[in-house]
Every structure is written in structure tokens, then in C-alpha cells.
Design a protein around this nucleic acid. Structure first.
Lengths: 337, 337
DNA sequence: CCATTTATACTCTCCGTGAGCATAAGATGG
DNA sequence: CCATCTTATGCTCACGGAGAGTATAAATGG
């Protein structure tokens, strides 16, 4: 029935402050010093030839974000409009990720407090007009330890594991040491455990806590650029991790990959895209079987050109299936009486 | 691999406005008219003797909410502190639900814009000190069509189905009529389809669109109190639906029910709680099997007192299991090479 | 003692999933 | 033209989990 795990993501990096008044009645606050600003932050994902990418700005050091302004119908509409202005094409799938409260991002503690509302969006790289300073970066540049398609990256065993072991040992008491190490083993699939590709956020937070990535050093003044992987401004890499985790979970029960595919594609291309997102390889024959029995795709009649080996049939996504079926996702021992 | 369904919840009721500026650079906005206020809204759930409840204010017409103020470390901390002040006991599980943008809630269009950040929290009713005007209401008072523990409620077939059929027929073209009806059939499990308890939000939105609930009438000036179920202020019933949907999904892959249970409980009590949340009955023997093999509970040694029939063993939740195992949740045709 | 209620132990069947084998259909190089 | 390589595609098998049913045990109230 259930599998276990940690609770909701606790944004350790966001040093925010907030309080709900004791009054249960909603009061349209305006008098007190509660005025804040809101920003939208976007995790935009595309997959090009088996390489997952994310949209970045500032030379790849930040996620695209902008201040919240009132001229659209909803937060989501606002994000869509903004992204479409940049890309010149409609954004297929948009999903809210998380809302963070931030304090003193600009340094001064008494400065304006703000709320960051982050979104996950799916597009295709070729739809993007190269405007502004935004461009696509490989998402494994930021999380090299997340790509297990060619097996676990060697630096996990060589670099991360020993460092984590040391960090676990540095806990004050033996029980705490064991607890720490258990957490390391679970998130990174050590000690004969299986690798769980969905624990993107947990892994990032663990590395942060263990002081193995630059963002942690910033906060404590230590040199912590131990583990490979490009850092980002503020808590953007954390937001990105949240997005990747969400997407890796989502592709398992919702047909969202198709938002990342061209109109026509071969089953292998589709599989490569899923593998790119999941960071691990799939069983080809079983993947095809699944595609067929789910009736998510249909043949276009055409064949793929310019290929090595036997030419593959081209497929397209059956949009109708979205209306025909509902999400299932039942793991409860239901009774049918 | 995937099941299909609708995309993320589109808050149709929230008439909000927002826009992201073209500038990809984060600007610490303060000069322009972008100052807003933020509110926290809580969906607090408890289950008492097989009855799921939610915390309400204003005589059951609203969810507890309060303005966002800066004195805690994070949004979640703020919510916890506030709830704990009210209940006098720690709030077990807290999870962010969704952030809505609202405009002109208080009526005037030029009034303060605001953002509502909603949370789902799990407690136990007996932990609540009866303070303020907050009290517990049965959640099926607000969504009577969601309780299928004694089979589908008769008014679905007698009342809702014909009304939905009429609504579908009222679409301008036959294809649109079919599309509407298909949506009705999926969400409400009509036409031989299975009931999917997770589609709480979709059902609410459908009833809203079909003009069958009071909230829809408010917006259009029609009398739409067709379907039984207590309405709520503003979009609170929508937020509640979001929370219920999330919780019904969550209990299937995370051991969150235990947050709603007393320290010791029988397996039947546990089952009743899950059934209360899911709104449908479970297979007793399989439920026990699942509990045992997942090692989520352990015997306390004591037996339940004051019971009819054979006395049941008392169990407690094994908190350690949270650290021992990670979430699995894999439905991809993985390859183990 | 018996009926009733609940607890608890087993068994059986079906199907989804991971995995492997075999064959087909192209290209390429001798 | 044939051998070989590569990718596509069809088929089978084994295992385990999920849904369902049967049987027995342990209490209570008449």
C-alpha cells in the first residue's frame, strides 16, 4: 500500500519568515507592514536528441524569473504569456511547483520580503526563438550525479560516497551517525540499495547539508566546491531539483513526455526521451508493449528516414486518449463489492 | 506506464491577474505598484471514529486563514505555529497545496491584490483545544457525492446524472456534447466506468461549470443550489477539494494516515480511517497483509478493550520505517543491466 | 449452548512486470 | 551477392503482487 519516505520538501536554503495571525477570520490586511512582492520562477524543460535541457539566464547561473504584475487572469496565464513571448510558441504543459518565502535576498534584512512561486513547464528546444540572454543548458550540468544511463557515475563512489561517510561519522553520537549514513545510503543507493531516481531533491539537500556543494559554502563561508556540478544563484538549484523530482515522478503516471516530443517520432526516440528524464535505461521491448497497450500513440503510416538499421515506424501522440481515460493510480486494496 | 488525465488544476474560480515582466533578470521590485499581500489558508484534516473532518471557521462557511506576517522562519513554520497555537498540540504533517492569485476579493477592483498559499495539514481532533470560533466539520458535508463507502450515494443517479446529461446536451455542437458527457462519465464513473476517488477536484470543477452548486450561482446570479453539499466562502470549497484530492492520492504511497491515528490502534481502526479518507471500502484481509509485509506497524502487546467480538491486537506505527526505506513508486519498465 | 461479531490465517487465480529469445528489415563492406 | 551490423518488432516465460474467497479462532450477549 504505502511506501515510505520523507515528508514534503523543506526549503532549508530559504531563510524566510512568516506568521499567521491568531485571528481565524480573514482580514483584508493593508494597513500593517505586510506588503510584499511576488516573483515567478520557471523551470522550463526540453529534451533534444536524448539530452534534457533547462532554460537558464545569466550565463546559466539562474533560472528565468520575473516580478509578478497584475495584467493577466491567473498566475499560470501570466507564466504562459511570458514564456510564449520568449519562445514564440505555446507552452505545452505548465504546473505549479512550490512557493517559497524569501527574506533579505538583496542583502538588507529590512528590505522587501518576497514570495517566489515556481513553475515547471515543458516545451521543445526548436520552438525557442533565441531572444534575450536566455539559453538552454544541459540539466545534468547542474546534477551530474543524477545521470545513471551509463551506470552510476564513477565520481559517486570515488568522491561523494567517502565524503558522505565522513560527514556521517562527524555526527556527535553513534545513533546519529547511523541515522545520517542510512539517509545517505537511501538517497544515493549505497549499501546494496537500489538507486531511486525520484529522490533528486533529497540528494541535493543532503549534499547541501553535508557541505559538499558551493551553495552551502556561500552560507557558511567555507569552501565546499567538492562535488562536480554547476551551482546557481540563490536557491535556484534547489528549485530546479524540485522540478526535476516532480517531472521524474510525473512521467510515470501522466503522459507528459509527449509535450517534449516533435509531432512525429519513433518509439526509440520516445524511449530515449524518457530515459533522458529518468536518468536511467528502460527495457526496450517492455517499453513498446506498454506504449501499445496504453494506446497512447498511433502510427502515422510514414517511416523514419535517415536512420541506421531497420527503419522504424513513425508515431504520433493520440490526444484523444486524454479525454477517453482518467487517471487510475490505485494502490489501495480496494473491495469491489 | 502512464495513465492519462487532466493537467494541473486550473483555478477557474480565482479571478486573478498577474504578469511576468519581459526582463529575465530578477529585479527586486519595490518601486512599481506590485506590492501585494499574502494569506495562508489551511485544510486541516482529522479522522474521528471513521468520520473525516476538517477545521472550519465562520460557522463552517470558511477555511481557517490568516494574513502572512514576517516573524517565522518559513511559510510552513508559520502555519505550524499558528495551528499549534489553536490546537495546543504539534501538527504532524504539513504539505503545501497550491498558490492562488486573487483580485478584488473584497469587492473593489483597485483594492489590494493578494496571493493565497494553501496548505494541507493532518492532526487529530482530540488534540484540539476548543478555542476561537474554529470547530470541526464533517468533510462529506461539503462533498456528499464523494462518500462511496456504502455504495454510490443515490442522489448521484437521481439528481446529478440527469443534470449533467442536460448540461452536456446544452453544448452548441454534437462533438462538444459528446466531449462534455465523456468528461462527466469519467469523473463521476458513469456509463460502466469505475469510480475514481482521486478526481475530487475535477468533480467539483465540473459541478461548478455545470452550474449545479451555489458558488457558481454567486458568480452568475443564477440559482444553482441543485446538488446537496454545504457551500463555502469565496473559493474555499475549491481549495478544500484540492486538499482532499491530494490526501486521497497521498495515502496510497506515503504512510500519512498514521498522523491521523492515536498512538495505539487496531488494524480495523486503521482500515476505517483509510476508508474514511478514500470514501470507499477496502478488502480487510488484503489490507492486513499489506500492513504486515510493509512493516509499517508493530504490535504493542496490548489488546483492545471495550470491543464487540474477538478482541484485536493493538498496534503502533513504526516511526523507524521512515528512515529505513525510501519511496519506491516505480512504474517505468526499467532495465537492470 | 448458540448466534453474532470481529480477528486472523491460508489459498487460489489473474495479470502486470522484468527479462530473454528469435526474427525481420534495412545499411555497409567485402 | 553475401556476411555482418544495426535497429525494429514479435513472442514466451517466470515471478510476484493484487483482488478475492474460505476457514478457523476468540470474544460477547442471549
Amino acid at each position: 500500500m504505502w511506501t515510505t519516505g520523507t515528508a514534503c520538501p523543506t526549503p532549508a536554503a530559504s531563510t524566510a519568515t512568516a506568521s499567521v495571525a491568531r485571528s481565524p477570520q480573514k482580514t483584508t490586511t493593508s494597513a500593517s507592514g505586510n506588503a510584499i512582492t511576488a516573483d515567478l520562477v520557471a523551470v522550463l524543460v526540453a529534451v533534444t536528441e536524448g539530452t534534457p535541457k533547462i532554460m537558464t539566464i545569466a550565463g546559466g547561473a539562474a533560472l528565468p524569473s520575473g516580478p509578478f504584475e497584475f495584467s493577466h487572469r491567473s498566475l499560470q496565464t501570466a507564466l504562459r504569456a511570458w514564456v510564449e513571448t520568449q519562445t514564440g510558441h505555446p507552452l505545452g504543459y505548465v504546473e505549479q511547483l512550490y512557493t517559497f518565502a524569501d527574506r533579505g535576498r538583496s542583502g538588507d534584512v529590512k528590505g522587501p520580503h518576497s514570495v517566489s512561486i515556481s513553475y515547471l513547464g515543458l516545451t521543445r528546444e526548436d520552438q525557442v526563438g533565441e531572444s534575450f540572454e536566455a539559453h538552454w543548458s544541459g540539466w545534468y550540468d547542474y546534477f551530474p550525479w543524477e545521470d545513471h544511463r551509463a551506470g552510476a557515475p564513477p565520481f559517486i563512489a570515488k568522491l561523494i560516497t567517502p565524503k558522505l561517510k565522513a560527514w556521517a561519522k562527524s555526527a556527535p553520537t553513534p545513533p546519529l551517525q547511523r541515522e545520517r549514513w542510512q539517509r545517505c545510503a537511501i538517497t544515493f543507493g549505497l549499501d546494496e540499495r537500489d538507486w531511486n531516481e525520484e529522490l533528486v531533491l533529497q540528494r541535493y539537500e543532503l549534499l547541501y547539508e553535508a557541505g559538499l556543494i558551493p551553495e552551502a559554502g556561500r552560507a557558511h563561508g567555507r569552501d565546499t566546491a567538492v562535488v562536480p556540478g554547476k551551482p546557481m544563484t540563490a536557491d535556484h538549484r534547489r528549485i530546479l531539483a524540485t522540478g526535476l523530482a516532480r517531472l521524474r515522478a510525473k512521467i510515470k503516471y501522466r503522459p507528459v513526455v509527449f509535450e517534449l516530443m516533435p509531432a512525429e517520432f519513433t518509439l526509440l526516440q520516445l524511449q530515449r526521451s524518457v530515459e533522458a528524464l529518468a536518468g536511467r535505461l528502460l527495457h526496450k521491448q517492455n517499453f513498446r508493449r506498454l506504449m501499445e497497450q496504453q494506446e497512447l500513440v498511433e502510427e502515422t503510416g510514414a517511416m523514419a528516414a535517415d536512420t541506421v538499421g531497420r527503419p522504424a515506424k513513425l508515431f504520433r501522440f493520440r490526444h484523444g486518449i486524454l479525454a477517453e481515460r482518467a487517471i487510475t493510480g490505485t494502490k489501495l486494496p480496494l473491495s469491489r463489492t
